[in-house]
């Protein structure tokens, strides 16, 4: 159906965005989304076209940057998650998200999830940016849709165990906590049935380019992210706990890559060498 997994991801994220805007009363305005998209794509173009050209590479200035699809995925992720009042806040998020891919690298691999990096920078440095954890509500059909779409993409890129490890660990920790507190099962289920949590688990924690390469490393890493998310939410009452957990643990990726080595993920199918795409 799609040539590479990114096409599927763009299609799904685009669909969620249309769905969110049309059925969920989101406050995001078209202008702000345009600011995000423009800043992401321009930064990608700057990094992959303009700067190489200035460095003397033979490259056409007006061509699409090779990884424009990744930039678009980052832009869609930011549109889905980040909220703000000002263009410059959104543009800042877009610029630093993409710039982080080129500036914060170990070897030839970036380790921050670009959209997550942009979100954290915007939350910390701007007065107006925020994320709305309750924005999807808890209606079952959204959750099923996310699960279905996420499952397809994950099967494609071979990162389903990362989502599973994250969700199982998080759900397990919350189960223990809620049982110990004495809340009934419906309180626990309400806590888990959050559209934002699922989107994070299926589409953000699993970014194959920035997370560890080896499967064992990814499982360890996802368990750690889930544990820290739980800790930040329940002990520090941070509603944005999952984004902070991912941000804080991202630098662990190069360390885990060193411990468990495996070939790096490539999106283009012809060069594919990751375990689960065959």
């Amino acid at each position: 159906m799609f040539k590479d997994a990114r096409d599927a991801q763009i299609a799904f994220l685009g669909m969620f965005l249309v769905l969110g805007i049309s059925t969920r009363d989101w406050t995001i305005q078209p202008g702000l989304m345009a600011a995000i998209a423009a800043s992401c794509l321009l930064t990608q173009w700057l990094a992959q076209v303009v700067i190489p050209k200035l460095q003397g590479q033979v490259i056409k200035l007006w061509q699409l940057p090779p990884s424009w699809k990744s930039a678009l995925i980052t832009a869609l992720g930011l549109c889905l998650l980040l909220r703000g009042n000002h263009y410059w806040s959104m543009a800042l998020a877009g610029v630093v998200a993409i710039a982080s891919k080129f500036l914060l690298r170990v070897g030839n691999k970036h380790f921050f999830n670009p959209a997550n990096f942009g979100i954290i920078v915007a939350l910390t440095l701007t007065p107006d940016a925020w994320v709305s954890p309750g924005q999807w509500g808890t209606q079952a059909w959204y959750l099923l849709l996310f699960l279905g779409a996420g499952g397809l993409v994950l099967k494609w890129v071979g990162r389903w165990e990362t989502s599973a490890a994250f969700l199982c660990t998080y759900a397990g920790l919350e189960a223990v906590r809620y049982a110990w507190l004495g809340w009934t099962a419906d309180v626990y289920l309400h806590k888990l049935m959050s559209g934002s949590l699922l989107l994070f688990a299926l589409f953000m924690v699993t970014d194959p380019r920035s997370i560890p390469n080896a499967r064992q490393a990814r499982v360890v890493w996802a368990v750690l992210v889930a544990w820290l998310t739980f800790l930040l939410q329940e002990e520090f009452f941070l509603t944005t706990g999952m984004f902070w957990a991912l941000f804080v643990l991202a630098p662990l990726t190069p360390v885990l890559d060193r411990i468990w080595s495996a070939p790096q993920f490539q999106f283009t199918a012809s060069k594919e060498s990751t375990p689960l795409t065959t």
Binding site: T126, D128, H190
Partner: peptide, 17 residues
Amino acid sequence: RNKFPEDLGFQTTGNRE
């Protein structure tokens, strides 16, 4: 009770719209 099993949690945003 059936639709609001959890206590209300809030968060402050920078939204001044």
